[in-house]
């Protein structure tokens, strides 16, 4: 009778809320999720409308005021050519918040398709594809990035492709294990007894039921993707100057720390950290709500 609190098989229909409503209410009660959401939404707002409330043009130099410490005029100080760090941090969220989600989206789509294929067909398809994916996972992102830049040149698109393809195998693995469990359920046999195509069975029958683990994996991957984008920018492989991108700013200013000009780096670093933490809090909340 421990199931009493949720369902009783003798109850009539329509008493219970839909699963999506359950998840929504559960999210709204999760403090983790709400805090994360506020942080993420703050940065999204900055990315969309940053230039309207940034006090200065993030790209305008002002050599006379270069390397000014934080003050009432320049809250976060200025960098080596006098650009306002506060304005640059605000507007600097734009590139990372375009590139990281697009990369994650690409990884999710590719990973889901691969996961469905390997989990559904099993056997030889699974063996071959899974070994290739594992080999791919063994290569560090940076190496892949170097190769891609040689082949495709540096651009945001390259970063999206590099990160998307690097993360796809990880998502594929999660989806595959969910599909393997789903495939054993009788509704899949029922679909086969209607002579449904493999495509229909995978994408119409199975896919909707593996959305929850995909959603969790996607939010978790988004956190990693933000980090990866920042890393690649820092290394000069990703977003190019004069973008006020955080990783790029840290890269061009970190030599200054030795001279005591900490403000040129600290605020960008904090921005990256807060966004990653925010996304991870959201991921935790989603995970909790879906596994209640």
């Amino acid at each position: 009778m421990s199931a009493v609190q949720t369902t009783s098989p003798t109850q009539d229909d329509t008493r219970r809320r839909s699963p999506m409503a359950d998840v929504f209410f559960s999210l709204m009660r999760s403090r983790t999720f709400l805090v994360g959401l506020v942080i993420v939404l703050f940065w999204v707002a900055c990315a969309l409308f940053g230039e309207h409330f940034a006090p200065y043009d993030p790209l305008a130099d002002d050599i006379i005021n270069a390397l000014a410490p934080p003050s009432s005029e320049h809250w976060f100080g200025t960098d080596q050519i006098g650009r306002d760090v506060f304005s640059r941090v605000i507007v600097g969220s734009r590139d990372i918040l375009t590139v990281a989600p697009l990369a994650t989206l690409l990884a999710t789509i590719a990973g889901t398709a691969l996961g469905l294929l390997t989990g559904y067909f099993r056997g030889i398809v699974d063996d071959v594809v899974s070994r290739i994916l594992e080999a791919f996972m063994a290569i560090p992102v940076v190496i892949v990035a170097l190769l891609a830049i040689v082949a495709l040149g540096t651009s945001k698109a390259t970063v999206i492709i590099v990160i998307g393809l690097s993360f796809a195998p990880i998502i594929a693995r999660t989806v595959r294990s969910a599909v393997l469990a789903e495939r054993e359920l009788d509704y899949v046999a029922a679909a086969q007894l209607r002579h449904e195509s493999a495509f229909h069975t995978m994408f119409v029958e199975i896919l909707p039921n593996v959305i929850p683990p995909i959603l969790v994996e996607t939010t978790v991957r988004l956190g990693y993707a933000i980090f990866a984008v920042a890393t690649l920018s820092f290394m000069g492989f990703g977003i190019q100057p004069p973008s006020p991108d955080w990783g790029l700013s840290i890269s061009s200013n970190y030599g200054m720390i030795g001279g005591g000009f900490w403000w040129t780096v600290l605020f960008d670093a904090l921005a990256i950290a807060s966004l990653v933490i925010g996304v991870n809090l959201v991921a935790d909340g989603v995970h909790g709500a879906l596994n209640d």
């Binding site: 359920l185 009788d186 509704y187 046999a189 029922a190 007894l193 209607r194 002579h195 029958e205 909707p208 039921n209």
Partner: peptide, 16 residues
Amino acid sequence: VKAMQIVFQNPDSALN
């Protein structure tokens, strides 16, 4: 295929 169908034991598993 349509001439032979099945009603499974557990409807939770049998219905998507």
